[in-house]
Every structure is written in C-alpha cells, then in structure tokens.
Amino acid sequence: MLLWINGPFGGGKTQTAHEIRRRLPGSVICDPEHTGFGLRRTLPPALRGDFRELVSWRQGVVEVLDLALTRHEGVVIVPMTVTDPVQFAETVGRLRELGHDVRHFTLLAERETVLRRLRERVLGRVLARATGRRAPARRETWAVTQLDHCLERLREAEFAEHLWTDHTTVPKTADRIAVLAGLTLDPNTEGRVRTRLRQTAVGLRHIRLD
C-alpha cells in the first residue's frame, strides 16, 4: 500500500508522514522532493523553476515508487504536494494504473492556520542559523504565494480524501489516516513535550538549503 499525503506547503504533510512511520512497523517514507531538488540542482540557476512541471520528475517518481512498492513489503508513505490535475494523473493515477493500492489523503486547514505553521517554520530556520546551518527563508515566502492556489485546488473532489487539521494534532491526524486506510498504528505513548521536541527535530532535518 502507498499512502500519498497531499496538502498545501506548510500543511503538515511531512510531520504526519513521520508520525505514521514511527508508529507503523515496516513502513518507509519515500519523499519525491528529493528527486525534484536533484533535478533542479542539475539545471543552471536561471532555468530552475517548479520541478513538478518536469516530465522527468513525474516519470522518475512513478518509476521509483513502483520499484519501492514492488520490492518493499511494508507500507510506503509519500508526503508530496500535487495540485495540478495532469501532474496528479501522471503520478498518483499512473501508480494506480500499474495496479498499486494507492490511498490518497489531502490535509487541509484554514489560511490563517497554514500561515501560522509557516511562521513556525521560519522560527525553525532562525534556530538552524544559530547552530551554524544556512537556511534561507525564501521557500516560506514562495509557500505563502502558493497558498491560496493550493487551498482552492485541493478542495476539489478529485483530491479527496480531505482531512481538516485546524483543531487536531499530528498524532490524531495520523490515527485518522490509519483508520481510513485500514491500518493499525502502534499506540502513541509520547507526552506533549517529547512530541514537540521530536517534531522540531523533524522540521530541522527537512530544512532545504537551496
């Protein structure tokens, strides 16, 4: 099974994916952003844009995830924003055509909720700078410019199942996805402080430096 977790930038995809992986033995995260940023770095700076528009990215994602789903016995978790119907068809749709069990979920929240989460990511970048890591904030700026488009597109029926996350926690969102997918997660035994520290660590590990 593949769990594709969609949503706006700053919508909680990565945190939710890591929560599921932590509590679902045998599961793995396969992040298509790694492929995208690799392709982006290959291009001269003046030609770098949204890697999702590259046919090579969409084809590569399908090839890699097809391999993972064929060879790996556990659940594959994919946190990735896709809002364009053609790109969706050429990734999620194509994997389904290949016979894979793909469960797609879109995490949604009100605009102010997402903006607050993006501000928290900026604070994480400030902390990263304090520890010596270069962490430019332009991705958060770009995410804000994309927010209204993402929220509008992802509300469409083709991007269901929709899960609203304004008034819930990451562990509870993971629980909900598991129930809908027919999976059983290990119990969440963490306290609030430990959960917050772990989520901060996940956020720092996923800071992009380009």
Rank of each mutant, 00 (worst) to 15 (best):
T165Y: 02
T81N: 01
E190G: 03
E161V: 11
V114A: 01
I20K: 04
R194S: 15
T42K: 15
L185D: 05
I77K: 01
R196I: 11
R153H: 06
R41T: 11
R176A: 10
R116I: 09
L154I: 00
D166W: 01
F51D: 04
F105E: 04
V64R: 12
G182N: 02
K13L: 06
H72G: 03
T145Q: 07
V78S: 07
T200I: 14
E140V: 14
W57N: 02
D50I: 01
H104C: 15
E158R: 11
G60F: 14
L118T: 05
C30A: 09
C30Y: 14
D186K: 15
T141R: 10
H149C: 03
R129W: 15
A201D: 08
V144Q: 08
A46H: 12
L185I: 05
R208H: 08
I5D: 13
T70E: 10
P44V: 04
L54S: 07
G60Q: 13
E19R: 13
D84C: 13
L197F: 12
R21N: 08
I77Y: 02
I20R: 04
L95A: 15
L204C: 06
E190R: 12
A178M: 01
E120W: 09
G7T: 03
V126T: 11
F51H: 07
G60A: 14
R192M: 08
T91A: 04
A157H: 03
T195H: 09
H72M: 11
S27W: 13
C150L: 08
V82Y: 06
G93K: 00
E19Y: 10
L209S: 11
T70V: 04
L39P: 06
V78R: 05
F37A: 14
T16L: 00
E97W: 02
